[in-house]
Amino acid sequence: MPSPGAVVEVEELVKRYGDVVAVDGVSFEVQRGEFFGMLGPNGAGKSTLMRMIYQVTPRTAGELRVLGMRAGEQARAIKQRLGVVPQMDNLDEELRVVDNLLIYARFNGIRGAEARRRADELLAFADLEEKRRAMVRELSGGMKRRLTLARGLMNDPEIVVLDEQTTGLDPQVRLNLWNKLEELRARGKTLVMSTHYMDEAERLCDRLVIMDHGRIIATGAPQALIRDNLPPLVVEARAELGEGAGLEQAAERLGLAVVRSGDRVSVFVADADAALARLREQGWRLLHAFVRPANLEDVFLKLTGRALRE
């Protein structure tokens, strides 16, 4: 049974392209007002799932409801209340900045003074007031991203769908975009975002699903996902040359979870000082050892045996 506050309801949703299964029977719900994330590596099925939610990819099987309406049948009505910010810049290069916004309003049936009022407001939100009459090609990468976001907000959507927003952006631009998204969340919008950046998901999302090979492998709040799957701390260290495997085994004998790559080991622990002391007691020399909190990247690694980004 869907809970009363659910604005996106996904049930056993499947998308196949010939023999390729892009989305393999996923189920989840997004609640009104929450910042919901989909975390996973490239090819995990995030974008396909996003496209199904914003009604440009028909489903193969399963159920999908957005704002209580069935996907496909009520595509227009759903899209009218959804804001979409796609992964690739697909702004209208032949139109000016402000016309990019105004034509989007027209596409959604908003016209005249109301459209102009919203365009003014969103140009301010996107810090693009001075570029109002500029052509799209004159904008920098970060400005294009902000304009794409503003465009997705022209219909004052209840849900904003953001696909891989910060891929390829430099850190400062990324931070700026994060602030914009947090501002939207504070205004009560429901946000659904896909990303393959663990730090992004951890910082922004109230709740998320971790995806791999078209399936959901974990669901929950970022901190809960970490807490439920791993000890809170990670000791990162390097063994002496050629001693990596030995150190890994020693840690395992102490009952600790370990991931090794060459002579580098990550040891998951509750008490870092105690673990380091016991390893040193056994005569292991740990080079460049440091302790950090466990994160979603580690959760992905634990659940799949692979790193999130290769």
Partner: peptide
């Protein structure tokens, strides 16, 4: 190349 239609169909327009 422009992916213009991909953008248009995210609105009420099909």
């Amino acid at each position: 190349f422009g992916r213009l239609y991909d953008a248009m169909v995210t609105t009420r327009v099909n």
